[in-house]
Simulated assay, not measured.
Amino acid sequence: MFYLGWNGLVWLKAIFSFQQETVYWLVITIFSYAYILGRLVKPLSWLSIVGSIWFGYIQYGLLLFPIANLVAWVLHLTGVPGQTSVVVVGTVTAIMIAIIFITGLYNAYSPVIRKYEVTIPKKTEMKKIHVAVASDMHFGKLSGVAHAKRLVKMIDRIKPDIILLPGDIIDDEPEHFQKKNMGAIMKQLDAPLGIFGVLGNHEYYGREIPQFLKEMEKVDIRILMDEVILVGDSFYLLGRKDKTDSRRKSFQQLVNDNNIDVSLPLLAMDHQPAELKEAQESGVDLIVSGHTHRGQMAPNHLITKRLFELDWGYLKKGQLHAFVSSGFGFWGPPLRIGSRSEVLEIVVQFEDREGY
Score class of each variant (00 low, 15 high):
M126G: 02
A134S: 09
I209W: 02
H147Q: 15
T124F: 04
T103D: 09
V145M: 08
T119S: 10
V131T: 06
H138A: 06
D171T: 07
L199I: 12
A148Y: 11
E173F: 03
R157F: 01
H130K: 10
P121S: 07
K179P: 00
I100Q: 01
L213N: 09
R157A: 15
P160E: 12
V145Q: 08
N201D: 14
I100S: 01
K187N: 14
K141N: 10
V133H: 03
P160S: 13
S143I: 12
N107P: 00
I113A: 09
P166C: 12
M182I: 14
D156I: 15
P121Y: 04
K159V: 05
A108Q: 04
K122H: 05
H202M: 10
G167D: 08
V152Q: 11
M137E: 02
L142S: 03
D190F: 09
I120S: 05
I100W: 01
H176N: 04
N201K: 12
I163M: 02
Q188C: 06
T119G: 03
G167Y: 08
I155G: 03
Y204V: 14
I163G: 01
H130I: 14
D171A: 05
P111A: 14
D168C: 05
G194P: 00
R114N: 14
Y116T: 02
G144L: 03
D161M: 13
A148W: 04
P160V: 13
Q178H: 04
A148C: 14
Q211T: 15
T119P: 00
Q178N: 07
M216D: 05
V145G: 01
I102F: 10
P166W: 10
D190E: 15
Y205E: 11
G144Y: 01
V152S: 08
K214H: 10
G140W: 00
A148F: 09
I113Q: 07
E203M: 15
A148Q: 08
K115G: 07
E173D: 06
V198Y: 00
I155F: 09
Q211M: 15
K115C: 06
T119E: 12
P192H: 12
P210K: 13
Y109R: 04
S143Y: 04
V152T: 12
G144F: 02
V118D: 01
P174C: 08
I113E: 08
A108D: 01
G140C: 04
M126I: 13
D161Q: 13
R150Q: 15
K159W: 07
D136T: 02
I195A: 06
V131I: 15
I169C: 05
Y116D: 03
S110H: 15
S135F: 07
M182F: 03
S135R: 05
V112T: 15
M126H: 07
H147T: 09
K149I: 14
R150N: 15
K179M: 13
E125H: 05
M186V: 07
L151E: 03
V131P: 01
I100A: 02
A134F: 04
I162A: 06
F196T: 11
E175N: 14
V112S: 11
H176T: 07
A191E: 04
I113W: 06
P160H: 06
M182L: 14
A108N: 05
K187T: 13
E215W: 08
G140H: 02
V133Y: 02
I209K: 04
G200A: 11
D172M: 10
K153I: 11
Y116L: 06
I185T: 12
